[in-house]
Design a protein around this nucleic acid. Structure first.
Lengths: 295, 295
DNA sequence: TCGTTTCGATAGGTCGCGCCTATCGTGGGT
DNA sequence: ACCCACGATAGGCGCGACCTATCGAAACGA
């Protein structure tokens, strides 16, 4: 049985006329007759009674008709469904991001993407870079915004650097400045209990690593919070915290003090598996994201 | 899109392994790869992500999968449905018969047919030959047992003679014999009021025609009855009747007197339209009927 | 009654395509 | 660093789907 044969069968069923059916399906009449006959031979039953000028469905034809209609309709639905995915009218992207990026960079990008492709469902997952990398590898995320360098460098991942961010020290605006000058050094944080993120935040590891490089073990005034909570603790005067400058700038009740040169930076990258082509919608989101970066 | 391609697609979806999928569908691996690729090209989207040793469905593949399953299932259902019809597991035969044949010949035949094909619905329609012929022509009957010759000889009908029946005169067993000898002639019925069937019975027309051929118009003691009623009236002594010998033989309270040579006969035939092949079940009933005739 | 027309079936030939075998290329495992 | 597993590619072959031309039968009108 072939889809063509079913199409021909439906054409004859509709017109009850071989010659006109052949025209409808843009084929010569003998070809259509042959294919109908081939179908009948395969099924072992005549589908039409060929009384001269009075073509009619046999009982076997009646039995086949509704199924043939459904089959052909399904093939059309199938191509259409796939086309909608291809044309980004439907679909889903699962995007992972670190919390600071989810609140800083993503809103504008996702707004733009959603305006362009309103049919695409966006699923955002917040987490530390290590968690995100694991989920990328397992296939439960399509894309992730992570912080370089990766501790667990997975060769199956492709990471494109997006932007360098300066880290700054934030303190309560109504407290005395954390240092004498306009900048601060890492060693100035010695003996100053920090407000620290929960485990899993890249910022935590980056900060701790920097302190150890400066020769001391940082102390924590309070730890375990998410980004919002940490900033709130700092505003309340519980201590300073090290955060990306982008986040700090949006809080009027925080005082921002940059590190002295060369300062502390982190590199944000967009990562995806390189062993499998991501879904079309994910590639498009990647493009839109990269497009937003220079701005 | 081709059904084969969908079958191959399902095989790969199930096994997630091109080589094993190829084995399952009994085709060489390159052929399967080619067909999958052709399908992908036609749809404009990859269906599988070919990560080494980790074949997986893409989003397009996920979208296609349920429809492909349904399409293939439908094709199997379709062949099966038609096979059931072909094998006479389901179906219907609409059979017309004159009343005498419906009570005389049909019970045994239909019993036999129904035992062989319990799934076939039998619809019996009783009526005069002319009515039956009209219904055959209009397509509301598949087969009909009629009496030859046909008044309205329809060239679109094919009538196969089944059997010749002798007509006899029946009288009440406890009444004096209708004639002096062992036989009777048509003219002996002159002035003997007959028990006569209702209009529409071929027997009525046959009897009246025979009387007129013998030079007289028959008189009726009572008329309008069906076969059973007519025989009952005769048993009650209301008068003689002309009936097929087959019917007369089963009533002990009736005396049967054959006509003198050449007697009266009627020819029963099985008719069907010859411009369209009858349904399979009807052809089979025809076969069974013809098989019963010699007995 | 006999053309004439209509329409499905048949005949014969051509070309595309689906299948094959053989081989390549590459990533993963030992 | 080798080999092995496995999907992709190359090249060739044969079937079958399509074409045009024609047949044959039925239905119509003159």
């Amino acid at each position: 049985m072939q889809l063509q044969q079913l199409v021909y069968f439906l054409a004859v069923s509709d017109t009850l006329h071989f010659t006109r059916a052949a025209e409808r399906v843009h084929v010569a009449q003998p070809s259509l007759s042959q294919q109908i006959k081939a179908l009948e031979r395969e099924l072992g039953a005549n589908l039409f009674s060929r009384a001269r000028g009075n073509i009619a469905l046999t009982d076997a034809g009646e039995a086949l008709l509704p199924l043939a209609r459904r089959i052909i309709a399904d093939t059309e639905t199938a191509t259409q469904e796939v086309q909608e995915l291809v044309q980004l009218r439907r679909g889903r992207v699962r995007l992972g991001a670190t919390p600071s990026l989810a609140t800083g960079l993503l809103p504008d990008v996702l707004r733009d993407f959603h305006d362009r492709y309103p049919g695409i469902r966006l699923v955002v997952e917040e987490g530390g870079s290590r968690d995100l990398v694991r989920e990328l590898a397992s296939g439960s995320l399509d894309l992730a915004l992570i912080v370089l360098p990766l501790q667990s460098h997975d060769p199956a991942l492709d990471a494109t650097p997006l932007l360098h961010e300066d880290l700054v020290v934030v303190t309560a605006a109504d407290a005395p400045p954390p240092s004498a000058g306009p900048t601060i050094s890492v060693s100035d944080l010695r003996d100053r209990p920090l407000v620290m993120f929960r485990n899993g935040y890249d910022l935590r590891e980056l900060t701790v690593t920097a302190c150890r490089a400066a020769g001391f073990e940082p102390r924590f005034a309070i730890e375990g919070g998410e980004m919002d909570a940490v900033l709130g603790f700092v505003e309340a005067g519980l201590g300073p915290a090290v955060v990306p400058s982008m986040v700090a700038g949006r809080r009027p009740r925080l005082r921002t003090t940059p590190f002295e040169a060369p300062g502390l930076q982190r590199t944000v990258a967009l990562a995806h598996r390189k062993d499998a082509e991501p879904p079309r919608a994910a590639r498009e989101l990647r493009r839109v994201l990269l497009e937003h970066v220079p701005a």
